[in-house]
Amino acid sequence: MMSKYLIGKAIVALWLTLIIIAGFAMPMVVSPQQWFELPVIPALEEKARIIFFHVPMAWTTLVAFFASMIYGMLYLKTKNMDYDLRSVSAAGLGTMFCVLATITGSIWAKFNWGSFWNWDPRETSIFVLLLIYGAYFALRSALDVEEKRATLSAVYSIIAGVTAPFFIFVMPRIMTGLHPGAQGDEGGSMPVAQLHMPANMRVVFFASLIGFTLLYFWMFSLKVRSARLEIKSQQL
């Protein structure tokens, strides 16, 4: 039991350490020759390294959001309080990753676009996600009865989940994007992951996506286990 978690933890730690080293240390040169050399992307230069950390954070936020929604659905179906516990844990982690993605993105925007906040479509979407998480926890704190809190917050997260895809259609009609990979950029309207990335950059990027997802699952299991123990200790 103990060793299973320990091995998992060690693997995630090692994996992310390698990614942090690769993300920061792989040199950027004008014409890459070696396998470890990254090309210089015009207008982004060294600032392009954020893609190895910022994008996986935003990705993890989405993973957590969907996990929270699916556990909410399972709660409604089974009325098992453990699913509610998992739903809140996922939402809590999602909020953390959402704040991290917003802050890192904002700092990057300051150096690349000149201001911390520009209401670019992606900035707007992450802002809405923050609002949804905020509303979710505000709703939970306004409900006293456990079952009611679990049911209503699950319903709210599902309603929020079904409206979120509308932003994909609404955003491009309202504003033009500055974000790399947004419409108007050379890469077209593709998500950032499909931007003209050379093979070695892509390997680090996808490894980082996997690493952050694993980190999320590790933190999630930690959070759920500690929440279960807390409930047990209250019952004693």
């Binding site: 609002l131 949804i132 509303a135 505000a138 709210y156």
Partner: peptide
């Protein structure tokens, strides 16, 4: 608070 994120699109 609850309505705004839902109604934003």
């Amino acid at each position: 608070v609850l309505s705004f994120p839902i109604m934003l699109p």
